[in-house]
């Protein structure tokens, strides 16, 4: 497939918002790779119900914008609905701006301020994309709460974009627990980025064995993209998780 354009994010204030980096670009490359465009063409054919595509933690919006702009190449049609959620209001405003500046073809619904998938109705998401805060840290930064809208309490929004707690997995584990609830029964698929320190093979095995969530769905899991090879180690990987 020809290289698809990377969305323009020059308007974004990177003092508050995560700047597109190697992990973001790996997601763009993977979602537009031959294997994944084939998978997504087959999963969401034209003339069937339009898929709802949710990105969790949109930051600048570069990944959601990429999907919305390049829907024809990635899905084979433009009948997709894209939705973003982020704990940071500045990130949500930036995402909306990024999508609108980059000639969207699919239909961008909205950005929401929220914690992972908590406001999504059960089974409402067909495709979920998550570039988590995956860097191992001693503890998690404080999450913003509803009160912060009024008090203007200074939060370390940038730390929230990368700090993942022990194994870098605290936030990702919570998201993986939610998949069985939020992904549609028949077509749901998630793309989640993991780094080597997250012990990705163990995470994948736990997903396959039904070790996440309350129902314990036994997911299909496959590594579909890698980058950052260091002395033979792949530092970053994109994992496809589906029923």
């Amino acid at each position: 497939m020809p290289l698809l354009p990377t969305p323009d994010t020059r308007h974004v204030d990177f003092d508050k918002i995560y700047e597109p980096s190697e992990d973001s670009y790996l997601l763009l490359d993977t979602l537009s790779s031959d294997s994944e465009t084939k998978f997504l063409h087959d999963r969401f054919p034209a003339q069937t119900a339009s898929p709802v595509v949710l990105e969790v933690g949109t930051g600048s919006g570069v990944v959601l914008s990429f999907l919305t702009t390049n829907s024809t190449a990635i899905f084979g049609h433009d009948s997709i609905l894209t939705l973003g959620i982020d704990v940071s209001m500045p990130a949500n405003l930036a995402t909306r701006e990024t999508v609108s500046r980059n000639n969207p073809r699919g239909f961008y619904l909205d950005s929401l301020t929220g914690n992972l998938t908590t406001p999504l109705r059960d089974g409402s998401v067909d495709m979920l994309v998550f570039n988590p805060p995956y860097v191992p840290t001693a503890e998690l930064p404080i999450l913003p709460g509803e009160e912060d809208e009024d008090t203007g309490r200074e939060l370390d929004l940038l730390a929230l974009t990368y700090a993942g707690g022990p194994d870098g997995m605290v936030t990702t584990d919570r998201l993986l627990d939610m998949l069985e609830r939020v992904l549609s029964e028949d077509r749901g698929v998630a793309y989640v980025l993991l780094c080597a320190q997250n012990k990705p093979e163990a995470v994948a095995e736990r997903l396959r064995l039904g070790g996440y969530g309350e129902k314990g769905v036994r997911w299909k899991v496959e590594k579909v993209g890698t980058s950052g090879k260091k002395a033979g180690w792949e530092v970053l990987g994109i994992w496809r998780i589906w029923r």
Binding site: V87, M89, S111, L112, T113, N115, P119, G145, E147
Partner: peptide, 18 residues
């Protein structure tokens, strides 16, 4: 009650409801 400002709805909860 979830507030909508500038077209963006805020679903963050107060700490006692999380």
């Amino acid at each position: 009650i979830y507030n909508i400002h500038q077209g963006i709805a805020n679903f963050l909860l107060p700490n006692h409801l999380v």
